[in-house]
Design a protein around this nucleic acid. Structure first.
Length: 152
DNA sequence: GCCAACGTTGGC
DNA sequence: GCCAACGTTGGC
């Protein structure tokens, strides 16, 4: 079992949207490192910190679970999609996505400011790899953030 | 809306 | 293969 953090712009897709829908495909990742993490790292059942970016405040809003492993992101082939990429060939797809299912919405979002104050979380990729939208999280880090999210 | 960080592109 | 220009992310 491994742990991950995935960022979504709050006004594009939030944990509340995921809670309502139950599960969703995580389309639109257009960064090779993030893609490789989904392709090579994410396994069904892995747990995910769901992070709201471009939010006030930004922070971890809940958790999710990988329910389908990496498969082609067909939005890259859709000319009308914001995620269209003319360089992705349907016969050799450049971009992948996973499906995630809702697990938990925290009573209160764990803000970036609170994460930053937490000594045990200083090594999180959230801080060391600021712009990566899909990133690995250590088990202890995951558990600590969940604890904080539940009010701990 | 600004802008720092940083990944990507493309000329050479 | 270098690196400047460019584009995007994402906090503030």
């Amino acid at each position: 079992m491994q742990y991950w953090l995935m960022k979504s712009e709050e006004d594009v897709y939030s944990i509340q949207d995921l809670e309502r829908e139950g599960s969703t495909c995580w389309e639109g990742v257009r960064n090779y490192e993030a893609r490789n993490i989904m392709r090579d790292g994410m396994k069904e059942g892995d747990l995910v910190l769901f992070y709201h970016s471009n939010a006030d405040p930004p922070g971890v809003a809940g958790t999710a679970r990988v329910v389908r492993e990496a498969y082609p992101d067909h939005f890259a082939f859709d000319r009308k999609s914001n995620y269209f990429d003319p360089k992705s060939d349907p016969d050799n797809p450049r971009w992948l996505m996973v499906d995630v299912g809702w697990v938990e919405t925290f009573p209160e979002k764990v803000s970036l400011a609170r994460l930053r104050e937490e000594d045990s979380l200083q090594e999180m990729a959230l801080f060391t790899r600021k712009r990566l939208s899909v990133q690995p999280v250590e088990k202890d880090e995951f558990n600590r953030v969940v604890e904080m999210g539940r009010g701990g």
